[in-house]
Amino acid sequence: MAQHQTHSHDSHGEHESHGSLKSYVLGFVLSLILTAIPLIFVLNDIVEGTAANVILLATAVLQFVVQLFFFMHLREEKKPRWNLMALILGLVIVLVIVLGSIWIMGNNEVYQ
């Protein structure tokens, strides 16, 4: 298991971005926990309304970050971090589309 996990040399390009069994298992366990939290809290009606929405979205975003770091190895990317930059650009576009649509269409309903 342990023979290739120590990627201390930055000069080896994508070879450092394999991850290790440990990081995959850790990512998997964290994802399971982050999926279980909203299930337990929301389906048992422990929290409701805004608090429930916050828990749902927070655990979803956290799980997104967990997958990016532990499964997609974004953290191990060498400089210049093109992948990260492209991702940020994409997320900005997605957020503008989603939040902008909700905002504009929400107003349309109000003024109808």
């Binding site: 650009l89 994409g90 576009i93 997605v94 589309i97 649509s101 909700i102």
Partner: peptide, 17 residues
């Protein structure tokens, strides 16, 4: 994948509206 992200973003926006 980033462009696919944007595709799903538009579908999510449509659903949310």
């Amino acid at each position: 994948l980033i462009t696919d992200c944007i595709l799903f973003g538009t579908l999510f926006a449509t659903y949310l509206v």
